[in-house]
């Protein structure tokens, strides 16, 4: 399977009054057809900024975006004119956002917001667009889609709204769907339904999905591969299963330990990583995780650990980690079987 989207060495910084905020720092990732890549990390680690940067949606100024390559099926998006880039957005690559409450325009009907996608990209006539939009809504499991077209967002429930967002994003059968925390704002049961829906749609259309989340539970159920992001950098790159059985970065381990388990002691306090994520305007010189890391050694604070290959996982996939002390981590967790 080919790489549909390939991002190499993406950096985004914000020039603010409080200094330069390095929101994304040398991030590379790719996603293949029909595959789900998950980017996971605490909030503030630069996930949203990174996904916005792919489509050139970072507000500039104050943002400054640099990358070696952002390629969609071999075509470099960085070299496109604004109009050409617009033709890609919502068409070949679409996005859905965290809060369906605020991501839909409250003043326009659902139908209007759906059909304008067809209108700008395909020049579809209003009447035809209406039929296609209704079809799109029924595909994401919205009952009585014809009626829903004339509804305003505030008349729909949160789950319904997110379904509308998904329908909107998938209307033109994009090659890549970037989903930025698509379920964070929803109830747990609705969350499961939406994730199920994404899986089904992916199977039907072979869409490549970049799933941005801070929730390891979501990652476990959805992702084929995972990038763990911390303070604007990718600190671990792994297939999903091996990551869960044997995280190769202290931060990944911390994230996994903070996932509540059903069989765990119900009264036990949720384990969370002590300390605060670093100030992106004032990163420590060495490993950004050093102040919170239980395995920290002296040289961690001097040098930035590179994202380097450490092991092959069971299915032969390469695993990479940005940690000087990977070997000790293996010891404490127990090596891979």
């Amino acid at each position: 399977m080919g790489r549909v989207l390939e991002v190499e060495d993406l950096s985004v910084r914000f020039e603010t009054r409080g200094g330069t905020v390095r929101a994304v720092d040398g991030v590379s990732f790719h996603v293949e057809e029909g595959e789900t890549l998950s980017i996971v990390g605490e909030s503030g680690s630069g996930k949203t900024v990174a996904s916005l940067a792919v489509l050139g949606l970072v507000p500039c100024p104050p943002g400054v975006v640099e990358a070696r390559r952002v390629a969609l099926e071999g075509r470099d998006l960085l070299t496109l004119s604004p109009a050409e880039l617009r033709a890609v957005r919502g068409n070949e690559v679409s996005m859905i956002f965290q809060d369906p409450m605020t991501s839909l325009n409250p003043l326009l009907t659902v139908g209007r917001q759906l059909s304008e996608v067809l209108e700008v990209h395909r020049g579809t006539s209003p009447r035809e667009a209406r039929v296609l939009c209704a079809k799109g809504l029924s595909e994401v499991g919205i009952p009585a889609p014809e009626e829903r077209l004339d509804a305003y967002p505030h008349e729909l429930s949160g789950g319904m709204r997110q379904r509308v967002m998904i329908a909107m994003a998938l209307l033109l059968e994009p090659r890549v769907l970037i989903a930025d925390e698509p379920t964070t704002a929803l109830d747990v049961t609705i969350q499961a339904q939406i994730l199920e829906l994404l899986r089904k749609l992916q199977q039907d259309h072979g869409t490549a999905i970049v799933l941005v989340t801070h929730d390891m539970g979501v990652v476990a159920g959805q992702a084929d591969r995972v990038h763990v992001m911390y303070a604007g950098r990718i600190v671990e790159d792994s297939a999903t299963r091996p990551l869960f059985s044997n995280p190769l970065h202290p931060y990944s381990r911390g994230l996994l330990e903070s996932v509540p388990t059903l069989d765990g002691d119900a009264t036990a306090k949720l384990h969370s990583i002590p300390g605060q994520p670093p100030d992106l305007a004032d990163l420590p010189p060495g490993c950004a995780f050093a102040p919170r890391c239980p395995l920290v050694r002296e040289h961690c604070e001097r040098e930035v650990p590179p994202l380097a290959a450490v092991a092959l996982s069971q299915d032969g996939g390469e695993r990479r980690s940005a940690c000087f002390e990977v070997d000790r981590l293996r010891d404490t967790v127990g090596g891979e079987a």
């Binding site: 617009r86 033709a87 919502g90 679409s94 996005m95 839909l104 326009l108 304008e116 909107m168």
Partner: peptide, 26 residues
């Protein structure tokens, strides 16, 4: 500064349309 403006851009609407259809009314 609303998120639905970002959504409109993400849909590939030209800036003029984003302004006229999505921003000015609100």
């Amino acid at each position: 500064s609303q998120e639905y403006i970002r959504t409109a851009h993400a849909k590939g609407l030209p800036p003029r349309l984003v302004l006229l259809r999505h921003a000015i009314r609100g």
